[in-house]
Design a binder for these strands. Structure first.
Length: 435
RNA sequence: GGAACGGUGGCAGAGUGGACGAAUGCAGCCGCCUUGAAAGCGGCCGGCCGCAAGGCUCGGGGGUUCGAAUCCCUCCCGUUCCGCCA
C-alpha cells in the first residue's frame, strides 16, 4: 500500500507519480481514496468524541455506585445509553468507509522511483547493459531446446501432461540433475550474505495479500479453497512475510535471505502461449534472494542483487542483457525494477530469466514490518518506520535450463554442461543420448 | 479427526464486572554509591493512530452491560493425551 497520509499531504504528487504508469482509471481511484480518507477522519473524530464521553461517564458511574449514590448513577447511565446509539451508527459508518478505503488502497499500485524510465509498455524498457555474448547463432544452435532435450531423453513433457495436464514439465536423468544443479549453484553463489530458508509452499490469504498478489491478482494463483491456502507463486511470498507484524532493530538490517522453492502459476490468460518446452509452466523451481532494509540501504542492495543475478547467468556462459522496467510495464508493487534476459539461440528469443525489484515500503506496509532506529549513543529513537523490501530471482530454473540446452548444444546433438555446474552433477561433462 | 487445558506488556506471571493499560519478578533506561564494575538504593519503563484533545489495544471477530482482560457466542492458534501418519 502507498502511504495513506500522502493523500492528505501531497495528493498532487501522488497523482503525478501514478500518472506515469499510464492508467486513467487509476487516478480516479486515487481521488476516490483521498475523498474517503477525508470522510474517515471526520467520522473518526466524531465517534471518538462520543467514546470519550462514554468512558468518562462509566468511570463516574463506578464512583457514584461505590459512594452509594444510585440516583445520580442511573441518570448518567441513561445518558450513556443514548450516546451508545449514536456511537453505534457512527462506528458502523466508520467500518464501511474504512473497509472501502482499504480495498481501494490495496488496488492502488506503488509509486514509481523518480529515476525509473517512462514508458507505456515492455517495448519501452531500455537496455541498460549488454548484450554480452554472441547473438548470431550458428546453424547447429538453431534447434529449440525441446527438440534437443526430448531427443536426449532429459525432457519428457508428453508424460508430464499425461500426469498433470498442459503446461507441466518433467525433466529426467541428467535433465533432472541439471535442475537440481542450477538450484544448488544459485544458492551457493549467494550464501556469502544470505541466510538459506526453506519456507512453506502453501500460505494463507493474509500472506498472499502482503506481497501484493491479493486481492487483485487472485486468478494468477492456485487456491486450495477447502483449507483457505494458496500455492506460492514465488518464494518472495513466504520470505517477505517471515517478519510480518514485527518491529526489527535497525542494527539487524539489512536482513538478507535466500530460498529454493517450487513456484506455482496458473498462467491465466497465457493459455496457448509458449506451450512447448520449458518457457512457461505451471510449476517451476527458482532460487529467490530477498532483503529487508532501511530506506537508505535499498539502492545499494538493488545494485548488488542485480549484480548477483547477472553473475549467475554470466557464469553459465549464456548471452544476456539487462533491461530496466519502465513505468508502464512495472508490476503493481514495484518501485524500481530490472530484468535479466538471456538469449536463447534455438528459439531466437530473449527470455526473461530474472527480475530484481525494489518495493520501497509498499509491501512492508501491507505486511506490517517495521524497524526502530537507534541514535549515535545507541538509544532507541521514538517511533517506528516501515522497512523497505527488495527481492529477485537469483536463478529461475526453466528458462536458464532451456538456454543452456540451446546455447551449449554440440553438432552431434549432445549438450556440454557448463563447468561451474559439474560439481553438482556428479561430474557429468556432457549430456548425451541415453539410448 | 476426538478430548482436555490454555492464549495477558520484550520475557515470566497475577488478575473472574467498576479505583485495571493492567500487580509482581526479570530484562531495559536514568540517577546515586564506586577508581571501575557488580551488588545495593531511588526513579522511569508496552504498542498503534493523532498536532493535540483523545481514541484503540489483554489471540481475531461478534454479543451482553452505563462500564468487559474478566460473562456469552464464534473463529484462529498453542500444549497434552488418543487416533492417523512420513
Amino acid at each position: 500500500m502507498i502511504d495513506q497520509r500522502l493523500l492528505r499531504t501531497d495528493l498532487d504528487g501522488v497523482r503525478a507519480s501514478l500518472a506515469r504508469r499510464g492508467s486513467a482509471s487509476l487516478l480516479d481511484d486515487v481521488d476516490a481514496a483521498a475523498e474517503l480518507d477525508t470522510r474517515l477522519i471526520d467520522i473518526t473524530a466524531r465517534r471518538d468524541a462520543i467514546r470519550a464521553r462514554v468512558n468518562t461517564i462509566s468511570k463516574e458511574v463506578g464512583q457514584l455506585r461505590r459512594d452509594g449514590n444510585t440516583v445520580a448513577a442511573e441518570a448518567l447511565q441513561t445518558e450513556s445509553r443514548e450516546l451508545g446509539d449514536d456511537e453505534r451508527s457512527l462506528a458502523a459508518e466508520h467500518d464501511v468507509v474504512s473497509t472501502t478505503l482499504r480495498n481501494l488502497l490495496l488496488g492502488i499500485p506503488n509509486l514509481p522511483h523518480p529515476d525509473a524510465p517512462d514508458g507505456t509498455g515492455d517495448v519501452d524498457n531500455p537496455v541498460v547493459k549488454g548484450p554480452i555474448g554472441p547473438t548470431d547463432a550458428a546453424e547447429r544452435l538453431r534447434v529449440p531446446h525441446w527438440e534437443t532435450a526430448t531427443q536426449l531423453g532429459v525432457l519428457d513433457n508428453e508424460r508430464a501432461v499425461k500426469i498433470s495436464g498442459a503446461m507441466f514439465t518433467m525433466q529426467r536423468g541428467a535433465g533432472a540433475t541439471l535442475v537440481r544443479a542450477l538450484c544448488q549453484y544459485g544458492l551457493d553463489l549467494n550464501a556469502d550474505v544470505h541466510e538459506e530458508v526453506r519456507p512453506p509452499s502453501l500460505v494463507t490469504s493474509a500472506t498472499l495479500t502482503a506481497t501484493g498478489q491479493l486481492p487483485k491478482f487472485a486468478d494468477d494463483a492456485y487456491a486450495i479453497e477447502r483449507d483457505d491456502l494458496w500455492c506460492i507463486p514465488t518464494a518472495e511470498v513466504p520470505l517477505t512475510s517471515i517478519y510480518a507484524d514485527e518491529t526489527l532493530d535497525d542494527t539487524r538490517l539489512p536482513i538478507r535471505m535466500m530460498a529454493h522453492s517450487a513456484s506455482y502459476r496458473r498462467e491465466a490468460g497465457s493459455a496457448g502461449r509458449d506451450t512447448r518446452g520449458m518457457l512457461r509452466a505451471h510449476e517451476f523451481d527458482k532460487v529467490e534472494i530477498l532483503a529487508l532494509a532501511m530506506p537508505e540501504q535499498a539502492p545499494a542492495l538493488l545494485d548488488d542483487m542485480v549484480a548477483r543475478a547477472e553473475r549467475a547467468i554470466a557464469g553459465l556462459g549464456l548471452t544476456y542483457r539487462i533491461i530496466e522496467i519502465c513505468t508502464g510495464d512495472m508490476g503493481q508493487s514495484h518501485h524500481r525494477s530490472f530484468d535479466i534476459e538471456v538469449y536463447a539461440p534455438g528459439v531466437d528469443a530473449w527470455l526473461e530469466v530474472s527480475s530484481i525489484s525494489w518495493f520501497s515500503d509498499y509491501q512492508a506496509r501491507r505486511a506490517n514490518i517495521r524497524f526502530r532506529r537507534h541514535d549515535a549513543d545507541g538509544k532507541p529513537v521514538k517511533g517506528t518506520e516501515y522497512v523497505h523490501t527488495l527481492n529477485g530471482s537469483a536463478l529461475a530454473v526453466p528458462r536458464v535450463w532451456a538456454a543452456i540446452i540451446e546455447t551449449h548444444r554440440n553438432d552431434d546433438g549432445s549438450v556440454t554442461v557448463p563447468e561451474v555446474l559439474r560439481p553438482y552433477m556428479r561430474g557429468i561433462e556432457r549430456i548425451e543420448s541415453r539410448s
